[in-house]
Design a protein around this nucleic acid. Structure first.
Lengths: 208, 208
DNA sequence: AACATATGTTAGACGCGCTAACATTGCAAG
DNA sequence: CTTGCAATGTTAGCGCGTCTAACATATGTT
């Protein structure tokens, strides 16, 4: 989702109606959030990137939060795409595929840290957005699908939902701690990929 | 009897030089961060709570981040205390104790959400603080201690560090997703305590 | 060509972080 | 006790950000 073209689209001739300011602002905001975090993100910066005045965004968005909600939605979109791609490469309905999906989640979190934090940062205004919520369930649904496929293919009778929740929990925790560099401060030499690969089968086994 | 007016919450008597503004500001900030999140936290609000002008804090703190660092440190302190207490109640070096520590972690996250988010929100200015870092390692060290005790008592030869990291990862992920109410949106009836109680033994078993 | 609509601009209100200059209090030494 | 200094608090004000209102320009429909 890297869009250095945020300016390109705006500079068509000396136009003074920007080609598609809405998209340009979303793209610019996405990059800015990734670069400096959502806290430090300012609408004004996005405006400078798009070469418009600071009042221009309000023709397209209600307020700052509405742009961030849009960025959040793009984030879920991108993450889901990355996860699907990873699974397809490693094999659908396989343990490798499921592990790969977890790793893709973590990769996304570290590669697009700012946006990931926004997606899971608990800004109440964003949580309510229809589109954001739908994207989230989509992504999780895909995980359940993979686990169900694996279980039924191997005659396991685990509750796929329960397994999926544990998996998500673990992978999300790893993402968060990785981003915060908490691991390094506490267990310096940790191999995260290996940890995930170990934990996935463990969480797959039936408890009790 | 009550000679003093009603405004003695922050201080003794109607003093013009606030008794201990530094502590009062930290306490006010702690509460505000918990109430509205670190993003929405404004130094000005804390000043109003303490009945001082917005310039007063700068006699005690370099800038806003320095107050937040102090709040963060208090957070780690409180969390560690809660964890230790929980372990001692459930039994040191036992599986129940270890599980209880995980639950205490989650309890803290949901009860003091704003501060927890601050502790793990990845504000780079705060990460460097000596005191914050020390508090973090303290808390993790205690977990390792418990796991080591349990393993040696039961003749298990797992790497306590590896187990501890997995446990922390899982519990931290659960905290994050709980705070964001992501579980409710995806698996409505989830019993989180039960999930933790199931996952702890699984993560304790040796991989491979 | 002319109007209506969409889109962008300038001006400005308001709040926040932070600094500088000024005021007051408490403490210590004469 | 008084005097003077250091600590602590206040008022004014700059710069920046969000957002609104009034004004200006492009687009396209008739």
């Amino acid at each position: 989702m890297s869009t250095a073209s945020a300016q390109e689209t705006s500079n068509l001739k000396g136009k003074y109606h920007h080609g598609d300011l809405r998209q340009a602002l979303i793209a610019a905001s996405y990059d800015l959030v990734n670069a400096h975090g959502a806290d430090a993100f300012s609408l004004a910066d996005a405006c400078r990137l798009a070469n418009v005045s600071t009042a221009a965004p309000y023709r397209h968005f209600k307020d700052r939060d509405e742009i961030l909600a849009e960025v959040t939605a793009r984030g879920f979109e991108a993450m889901t795409a990355k996860a699907v791609e990873a699974v397809e490469a490693a094999g659908e309905g396989t343990l490798d595929g499921i592990t790969a999906m977890g790793l893709a989640y973590i990769d996304f979190a570290t590669a697009e840290e700012g946006v990931f934090r926004l997606m899971f940062g608990g800004a109440p205004a964003l949580e309510d957005s229809e589109i954001v919520m739908e994207m989230g369930t989509n992504c999780f649904g895909y995980l359940i699908q993979q686990i169900t496929a694996y279980c039924s293919a191997h005659g396991l009778e685990q509750d796929a939902d329960a397994v999926a929740v544990k998996m998500w929990t673990f992978v999300h925790g790893a993402s968060a701690l990785l981003m915060d560099q908490k691991y390094e401060k506490v267990t310096p030499g940790l191999d995260v990929k290996r940890m995930i690969a170990e934990a996935v089968p463990l969480l797959m086994t039936k408890p009790g």
